[in-house]
Amino acid sequence: MNMKDYIGIGVLALIVAVMPFAVGNDYYLGVLVFTALNCLTCIGLCLLLGYAGQISLGHSAFVAIGAYASALLTTKLGWNPWAAMGAGIVISLVTAVLVGIPTLKLKGHYLAMATLGFASIVHVVLVAAVDITGGPSGVSGIPRLELFGLALDTDTRIFYFCWALVLVALYFAVNLIHSRVGRGLQAIHGSEDAASSLGVNITVDKIRIFALSAVFASVSGSLYSHYVLYIDPGPFDVMHSVLLITMVAVGGIHSIWGAVTGAVLLSLLPEGLSFLSEGLAQFNIQYKTDYDTLIYGAILLSIMLFLPEGLFDGIRRSFSFFSKTNTETERGQ
């Protein structure tokens, strides 16, 4: 059964609980908040990409919709942040359905191109609709979230709140995967013809999982707004979609834990690289942040070459190799 998944969620909860004590520094806690936000989006994206087999290069747009709904409704109309987040969810949901109806008929590269187009349209609107979105100068003065009268105004509190949502998202995802609906999605991935011959409504199910993943992305965007308190279109460009897909692919698209692994790893990598650059500086070797792209590329390339099922699967395999069990049920031919 899937007891392992719930144990995994428990272990992650424990790690989250002790993390602020291990990391004294607010800066690093902040990095871990962004990590949580990426995890949230990637969990939804993994359900769409890894389980239902539908690619989306448009998820930066849903993050943006959540972020801008929160920012604009709170600053311009004085809405409560929770209501604004809810509105963001509704707008993302409706947008996902409207975008999904025509695009999810496409497959593979064509679906990638169509969703990419959607992401760049949303980005262009954010930059160009200056009167509404503030254009390139963005929106500032976004209020903080408040939970039962407790302001989420320290990094520790926000850290706990965001990671709690990641745990909830994981719990939802694990339940969904092991359900009638989840198996229907995996069936669509395996063979659309066979899935529909068994009564799976492939058109509707694809749109529903696309919408669910859009909601995860939207919540992540809203949290981003209320944490950073200032947003501009910069972080929501098409490259952010590509980064999200990379996270899921690096970790391993076939497992929700792979998505989490990838999101954590690639969110922390820039910090790791700045450590490296300080280390190298002691030996008088100059490391420029431009090299980051090179290292990202090298990592992606080596994972695709040596661990095509992703990092998480690689770790799992090496463990099962040592314990010499469970090899019968390994994925793949």
Partner: peptide
């Protein structure tokens, strides 16, 4: 088990909320 799709009921919301 996919073949039981039409012989079972749980929708997406229930599937998300309740463990298997």
């Amino acid at each position: 088990m996919v073949g039981r799709h039409l012989r079972s009921r749980c929708g997406m919301a229930v599937s998300c909320l309740l463990p298997q």
